[in-house]
Design a protein around this nucleic acid. Structure first.
Lengths: 292, 292
DNA sequence: GCAATAGTGTCTATCAGACAATATGTA
DNA sequence: TACATATTGTCTGATAGACACTATTGC
């Protein structure tokens, strides 16, 4: 069988980009790395890289996730009821506007990863080149360039969270020497390329998916309390939930949580039971996100 | 700014594949075309083609949709409350296993299109090279090769539909001369490449999305009755629904349906009011798929 | 009349949300 | 003791599902 004539189709580069979400200090945060070269030199961007010649898309995303965070990706197909130290990883969407990278035609298969709170990013050991940034900060009104790729993807921004972030690793301010079309890209504090759009789509995916699946447990350590799980929902949705009704709801949904046996007083107050994620992946009935 | 060194990344071809779904004779059907060349010569496949050098992914999918069906794709962003003769089109997922095409490395960005019942396929005017096939038939137990790319994507197959299809355009039987690894690909009646997996993912997307969105109206003509909309739900989910409760539910959901003014007796019996799709895209509360 | 579909009304078990009350730890 | 969180219980309004009943056409 003859191979394709290479002149019969245009050449593409294929990359994977990662939206790695976690909950830190009651705020939904994502992992960003600082770009060391043009274009968008000095700006923050989502981690990612080229897909290798004999590598599946999911494998490339899992490899990037390990390189950037040390997290081992869960295989959603494997029935492992014990989430040792793995993050949830799933394909998000693919972005391929012809001008999204000025150098050449690049199609990026974005993936979404949900991880428990981690000690610190470690992009080559350089703490100044990677950080957990609150998504509220990155998705300010003017940060998203380009047309919406999914309807209602910007509906419902987070509301109350506003904690101060690492004092030494704030937004880089003086990157105006890299002046390629800043109006379109939302100013020097915004993410590079179309990454704000990708991040917005990933955040919206996470917000909707914890409604009808048990994925919120992916933000928690292996053993967690009902209150910790509630704070995950509150941070991701940007709302406050009634602790009593939340407790009744999650403990009453079969397969969502299984008791782990012990108790903890991590949060102060009366000791809380520890739970592990149950085997159920789909929640029926779903958790209800409060009205807007 | 220097372009990438071409040797720094592996070369890819990028294609779009289309899962075009419609409801015909109470059955969920998809558009398939017969392959005229190796590999998988003579087998049915999803329509698709290469993304052009300066073409966005969604534009490539819309172009393929017009070429194959004559349907004009809706832009989900444009607020057009009057669906003239357009199909819903959205990105589904991207498939890029290294060996999915034996000729070279091909990454396919699959799209999902939902269309009302159409007169007939017209792939180059050759009626024998394109057909609407019931998905139940294409997704028989052994037809899906490869690992599951989305959890629970094969849960809940359609149950009752089993109408005879076009007698002159049934499945091609004697294509055994094209003998590249038929065990892996599910036999001569199965779809080419990994298209059974793509179709299964598209069907599952449609089944879940009509729960919480008004997308079921994309299967209907511009004006339709509540009974016709109910038959769409029944065909897509493979269930039967109570006509009385369904009527109360859809007419009571604000923004879902707006009266079009007339009545029709298309289905026999008492004339039914005609409706158009309302402006609402998200249904709250959602339609509830009956338990398994 | 009979068959078929459209549409309305009613009943009930269930559930989401509001919130009182109690339990059990730390400062 | 004061405070914070966990956990259970109760009440109420909304609703999904079951189903009786009526309405309007064609045969």
């Amino acid at each position: 069988m003859p191979p394709y004539d290479p002149s019969a189709f245009p050449p593409f580069a294929v990359t994977v980009d990662l939206v790695v979400l976690t909950v830190r200090r009651h705020a939904l945060c994502t992992l960003v790395v600082r770009r060391g070269e043009a274009p968008y030199q000095g700006r923050w961007a989502l981690p990612g890289g080229f897909v290798r010649a004999d590598e599946d898309l999911g494998a490339a995303a899992a490899r990037e996730l390990v390189e950037e965070t040390g997290l081992c990706a869960h295989d959603p197909a494997a029935p492992s009821p014990v989430p040792s130290n793995g993050a949830h990883l799933e394909q998000l969407a693919t972005y391929g506007a012809p001008d999204r990278d000025p150098r050449m035609r690049v199609v990026s298969v974005a993936h979404l990863a949900l991880a428990p709170d981690l000690p610190a990013p470690r992009a080559g050991g350089d703490a100044n080149s990677a950080r957990w940034a609150p998504v509220e900060e990155l998705l300010a009104e003017d940060a998203i360039a380009g047309a919406a790729s999914s309807p209602a993807s910007t509906a419902g921004a987070a509301s109350t969270v506003g904690t101060a972030e690492e004092p030494g690793a704030g937004l880089v301010a003086g990157a105006a020497d890299d002046a390629d079309s800043e109006e379109k890209d939302g100013g020097p504090g915004a993410l590079a390329f179309d990454h704000a759009r990708i991040l917005a789509d990933g955040v919206e995916r996470a917000r909707s998916k914890i409604e009808y699946s048990s994925l919120a447990t992916a933000f928690c350590p292996p053993e967690f309390t009902v209150g910790e799980l509630r704070r995950v929902y509150e941070a991701v949705w940007g709302v406050t939930l009634d602790p009593r009704n939340f407790h009744r709801k999650v403990t009453g949904t079969p397969g969502f949580l299984v008791p782990a046996g012990g108790t903890t007083t991590r949060q102060g107050g009366r000791p809380a039971q520890l739970f592990r994620a149950g085997g159920a992946t789909l929640l029926n009935p779903p958790m209800l996100r409060p009205e807007v």
